[in-house]
Structure formats: C-alpha cells, structure tokens
Write a protein that binds this DNA or RNA. Sequence first.
DNA 1: CCCTCCTAGGTTACCGATAACTCAGAGAGG
DNA 2: CCTCTCTGAGTTATCGGTAACCTAGGAGGG
Lengths: 316, 316
Amino acid sequence: MTVSRVLRGGAGFSDATRARVLSEVDRVGYVPNRIAAAFGRAGASTLIGVCVPRLTSPLFASVLEALNATFARLGYQTMIGVHNHASEEEETWLRMAASWKPAAFVLASRAHSAGTVKLLRSTGVPVAEIWNLTTKPYDLAIGFSHYDNGVEMARLILGAGRLRVGYVGALGGQKTAAGHLRHMGFCDGVADMGGKVVATEIVEETPGFYAGFYGTETMLARGAALDAIYYQDDEMAIGGLAYLGKIGARVPEDIGVAGWGGMEAASILPKRLTTTAIPTARLGKFAAEAIVSRLRGDPVDDVTIIETRLVPGSTI
Amino acid sequence: MTVSRVLRGGAGFSDATRARVLSEVDRVGYVPNRIAAAFGRAGASTLIGVCVPRLTSPLFASVLEALNATFARLGYQTMIGVHNHASEEEETWLRMAASWKPAAFVLASRAHSAGTVKLLRSTGVPVAEIWNLTTKPYDLAIGFSHYDNGVEMARLILGAGRLRVGYVGALGGQKTAAGHLRHMGFCDGVADMGGKVVATEIVEETPGFYAGFYGTETMLARGAALDAIYYQDDEMAIGGLAYLGKIGARVPEDIGVAGWGGMEAASILPKRLTTTAIPTARLGKFAAEAIVSRLRGDPVDDVTIIETRLVPGSTI
DNA sequence: CCCTCCTAGGTTACCGATAACTCAGAGAGG
DNA sequence: CCTCTCTGAGTTATCGGTAACCTAGGAGGG
C-alpha cells in the first residue's frame, strides 16, 4: 500500500519512506501492472479506444497522431480500431474494445449503428465524436460541418462567376463518409447561388490521386462544358489537375479546380490550390484534452466547433 | 467455469449446456472482461504493442493498417506508440506499454536503446522488429535492407550512364532513420560503379513534398552539374520534379530523378517515377501473422526478407 | 455386483493494485 | 498523567476469468 501511495503521489507517508520506496523501485526495476490497476477499479483504466475510418488517409493519420501524442502526454494509452466507413465494422470493433474496459472512446464516423449506441450506453464511459459535427451528439462532439464546407466552397466558386460546375468524388466502398455531406452541401450551395451542377462523377476507387485523375477523365469524356470542378479532397484535385494538364486545359483560365483538406501534397503545385484547410492536429489535440477533462470531472463544452478555413488559392 | 469453457471453445460440457450458456449470454448481453482474463494469466493477453516512427508517413500508415487489420482478424488488439525516430521516446513508450503486459511487441525502428533491450528481455514476450533488417535481430525480424535499396538504385542510375549524381534527403529531426541507410548504400553503390556523388542536400524539414522541392532548389543553387538526383522518398522526388519543372529542366533528358517507396502520389505524374516499390501491406500482414504464429507456438523463421522491387520507370 | 474409468460440471485459489479499514505511536492539550 | 487527535503505515477484501483440482453419477468390463 505504501508503494502504491508513493507512486501515485498520494499522502500518508513520510519523506524518508518515500525516498526508500523510490530507491527500491529503481533497484528492482518495479513496473506497476496497469492491467491489475484497471481490473481492481474500473475507473482506474488509462486506456482510450479510438476508432477511425482509415489509417492511410493523410487527414485521419494526422488527427490520430495528435490524439495519440496528447493522450500519451496526459498518461493515457491508445487502442486503435479501423472501421472502413462501415458502421458494422465500428460496432464489431467497439464490442471487442469494450471488453478492455477503456476509460473513454473517441469515434470518427458519420453515424453509428443502433447496437453501437446501445453498447456505448451500457459502458457509461465518456465518448468523443470527432470529425463531423452531428446534430445530436452522444456525449462530446468535436469537429465541423462538412455540409457547410461544401456550401462555402460552392459560394466561392459561384461567386467567381463559374456557374456550370462539376463534382468528382470517390466512394471508397461507402457513401456514408463525410465526403458525401460535402457533396450535398456543395449541390445545395450551387443551387442557392443560381448555378448548376452539370456533371457528377463518383468513382468506386479509394479516394486518392489516381481516383481524381481517373474520375476527371471519365467525367470530361461525357462531354459536359464546365467552369469548375470541386473534388472530394485535395489528393483527388491534384490528380484532376494532372489530367487537366495532360489534355492541355489551362487552370484557372479554362477551368477552375477546388479541393478539400489543405493537404501537404498540394504544396508542390505551381499554383496554390483552392481548398478548405482543416486543422487536423488541433482537432486531435483538442479532442484528447476534452476527453481527459471530462474524465477528471472538469467542465467541458458538449459541442466544440473546430474552425476550418477556406483557402481562395489561385485555381479558381 | 462452464460459461468460460463454452465461450473459449474448450471441452467438458454437453451440447444442451452449451446452447443454454449461449442463449443466456445473448439474453443478458454478457461481454467477457478481457482485463480480468489478461490479469488472471499473463499469457492470456490479446494486446499487442506496436511502435512506429510516425503515423503520418504514408508507408508506415500502410504497414500499421495491415498490422492492425491482421491482428484484429486473429483476435488481437493493437496499442500504438509513436517514437519520432528517437530511441528515448521508444523506450519511454515501451516502459508504459510493458505495464499493460501485452502478448507481444512490434517495433519499427532502426536501433533500440540499451534500456529498451533490457526491458524487452525482462518482459520475455515475442518481439517483431520490422522495416529495416538488423544484422542481429532480437527475436523476429521482418523487413528488407535499406542499405541494399540504396546500392541497387545507385547501380540502376549509374548503369544508365549517369555518373554525376546528387542526393536529397530530410532529417525530420533524426538521422537514425532508415533513409540514412539508403543514403549510405547509395553513396557506396555510386563509388563502386565509378561515379561520384557531386552534391548532397539533407534538409532539416520533415520528409515530404515541400522538403523535396526546397532541397532541390537549395542543392541546385550551389551550382553543381548533375546527371541525376536520388531522393529519400517518392514524395520528396515529386517535390523535386515540381521544382525541376518550374526551372524548365527536362526529365529525364536534362536530369534523372529517382525516389523510393512506390507511393501512390507518384501515380499522377506524367512519367512513371523511377523508384523502389515497398510492399508495405504485405510486410504488415506477414509481421502480424509471424507474431501470432510465435504466440501459438508454431514454428516461425527468425528473419524474413520482404522483397522490394526496383521500378525502372521513365525518369532515369 | 463391484470396481474402474470417463464425463459433465462445480469449487477453490490466484493474479496485483487499491479502497476502506485498522492500528501503533507521537504529540498536544487539559 | 491521562485522553484525544493526528500521522504514518499495515491489513483485508475485492475486482472477473480461469488453471487446477474435485465430485457425482453413469457406463462398461470382469
């Protein structure tokens, strides 16, 4: 008990005892068993379950890196899950993760299955929903509105006098992803501004450079005359720019291009890409800090909007 | 005990009892407590500690995704750590992770501190060292030789008659990373082939598109005449190509370019990038399966070479 | 009919940290 | 000098799963 008290920084021991404990701990190389600690009292777990759609998306990787770094700094460990934009996979992972009795969950997904919500409720631990702001958060929500991002980009493009626009997205297996929300916001925004979404191409591929290249090729092959193309993300926009360059279309003179995400890949383009910058590291750090605050009983806002930034660039 | 036996698929119960247990488990929504299981017997843990240099590098993200997916499929959970190419950070993480008594560790780093090795030894669990093949693996090693990758690319470039070459890398904070090994292999390979590394530029930035762009600019500003440039990775090579395009240098006529990694970003280039393709998903899957085999007591090779593939491309 | 073996299922003890309780001794106050 | 309080430190019980052990009863063989 004295060792436990000393190591956890409590009270009830003298300075001499404290020193003796620390030296002995050092001598024998004692490492507290966190499994036992988490087992004894459920609230003592320092494990956090984090479930994201993919690890290979630059933006999610960045969010995860910030989450993990912040949790580690605050003394928590991250257990990861990947749900591939499928709510059943999220539920499967959650069932598994719940059996580890983590202190909290961080979920990045647009919607949860009924089973997921029931499971979360039965665990009773704090939950942070990140990435897309849901209308009715389960517990904590940290993110922004993808729909609004789409609307804002529509305003920027249409405001520049480009009325006949196209959209290129990628399913990557699922249409439940946040990109779909941006697409809907974009369409509504275009309609509001008196423009028209002349062409839409949603390829089956995983979002990425190639999907953007290929999607642009397919869409333009159908022969629509376009003033601008909005892409699901920057990587796709860069792929699209590569195709446009190949066919000799001048950007932004002949056609405008806009992406989303503010990804580093765009930094090498000769022109600055018109996009929406997402402060992924800030989002991850904030979400981790919010969860820890909640665990410590400190007051936390239920909903936190992470401000995204429309980057006008020079491709529109 | 009967419930435990049924759920873990053992013997010692009748079919009728089994059915009754399963229906009752379903009725009350019983979820086994893995913390308790891992606590009761140390060997029963299904937690795997995985430590990688970064989460935001496309290649490591891909390896991690494959590791995590394979472990999940085989009933294991992944606890992640990030060491930023610093062996002290790896040791700090390992000390923390060891207190969770994981079943095994997967480490992606070029070298471990003495404290790390001592800690690993004291835990006694299987360890897979991935990414770079060490000369003397601690337990299991799965990867390839970055040094040889550098030598091979030197042979390809010099074999194409390009004798005056440059190298552009990025420290990203640490020179202990595998990129440093490729650099050394490249230099040795160039010397063997009778060429000369005329210019070397190692920028302080994190490896990426911008580091490649900026590194190329800096290196060329020093005025060396070059036949080809070898980049630390494909993203840097793409950044370099962007700079070369900006100054009007033709590739490969005026100067050759080679990258490393076989990254998806290169798929949009008008020419196919000369590079070395790394089967990251295969590496991650294989490493996870090897660790699980070892945990199950099945025979496993201590050292597994994952074959990388030199992609001649058309930029040399 | 008895002995042995087998099977289905139950009982006990254990893992390590820690909440809650107990206790010894020192010091203070009357 | 006695009691009361406070402090440092020890003791007990607990969390849930499971290895190891135990037991009742049935089957089968001699």
